[in-house]
Design a protein around this nucleic acid. Structure first.
Lengths: 195, 195
DNA sequence: GTCTATAACTTGATAGAC
DNA sequence: GTCTATCAAGTTATAGAC
């Protein structure tokens, strides 16, 4: 039972917002303290260090992606459907918690050497599973025989604007957005289908 | 005729590499000085400040994108061909100078307030021109009637992995990569064309 | 142009009173 | 848990000798 005090949660939340806006390295403990109306030294009653804040955000979000990937592969066996669900998950997470998504995506390099190793290893695992889905889709003749690494990076990277740009899509447009993203990634944007 | 000494160029180059690896805020003048085998104070014989280094990289790359956009719109009038050329340019620049592309894309927020304003204004101009191409393509019935902002962000964001990931694609694979990116963006990855 | 020395300031983190 | 006070180290940048 890990009890997390309300104040501790507040600190994590404000830190994440500052990391998103200014980046980890440009965010001082004084800035975080100011955001939660405390003196710097008081922060250390709740957290061990600045880096601990970054670790929590990065690995919590990494865990969410790993869990989603595993759940999707268990629930469906059609690789195209699995891809659809992955795009769905990325989209929902990006819209629901763009702050954590940005910090997870852009600030992990400021983790300590050990943590970077662990983080990169998790990401490699995630990408490996993504590639396996593409292999299955290509073997089944459902997905074009394009280089899988390029497909994967283009899809994942193509979703990153959802958290990086300021415009949060309102909740009632979320399903429309997802349908559009699926259409673009799966069928492209060209009308005439003379391929 | 602005003459740029070899040493000054070396400083810019090493600074860009360090900004790419560690981020602007986490890169010290000492690190830059060390990379070019000088003492910190000697740097100031060649440059005015740390931020000047960032400014040069960001605005030089921004200028390249603006120039390319203008040249493409002058040279072709088919909007789909214009999109193709834009994707081509992004790809070539990302492979040829991934360091500048990364700093341009990720570190502009550390510019001073005035420079940020100018930078964002250039980007808005670029995006406006991109959207106009999509409008023309949709009016001509060539491009699907999907929300144009979402199309634009997905395409641009989907190319960002080209400079963010470590794997530089070897020069002899560049044309294959471009063809694949065009195929994915324009026609998607799904084989069956029952749309 | 490059150096040593240093100014002026900010950084993350700690000690100890309350 | 929160504070004041403080530390040691690091930051960008400058002054002035050579």
């Amino acid at each position: 039972m890990t009890e997390i005090s309300a104040k501790k949660q507040r600190i994590y939340q404000e830190a994440a917002r500052l990391f998103q806006d200014r980046g980890y390295a440009a965010t001082s403990m004084r800035a975080i303290a100011g955001a939660v109306d405390l003196e710097v030294s008081s922060l250390y009653s709740h957290i061990r260090s600045k880096e601990e804040l970054l670790q929590e955000i990065c690995f919590r979000t990494a865990g969410q992606f790993m869990d989603a990937m595993q759940a999707i592969r268990r629930k469906w066996d059609n690789p195209v459907r699995q891809l659809e669900e992955i795009i769905r998950f990325h989209t929902r997470l990006a819209l629901q918690d763009p702050t954590s998504a940005t910090v997870f995506s852009d600030e992990w390099k400021h983790l300590g050497p050990e943590e970077v190793k662990s983080f990169v290893s998790m990401r490699r695992n995630y990408e490996q599973q993504f590639l396996e889905i593409l292999v299955q889709g290509q073997r089944a003749g459902l997905i074009r025989d394009l280089p899988r690494h390029w497909i994967m990076h283009t899809i994942i990277s193509g979703l990153a604007w959802l958290y990086r740009t300021q415009h949060p899509v309102p909740p009632d447009e979320q399903e429309h957005l997802i349908q559009t993203l699926l259409a673009m990634n799966l069928h492209g944007i060209i009308k005439s289908q003379n391929v």
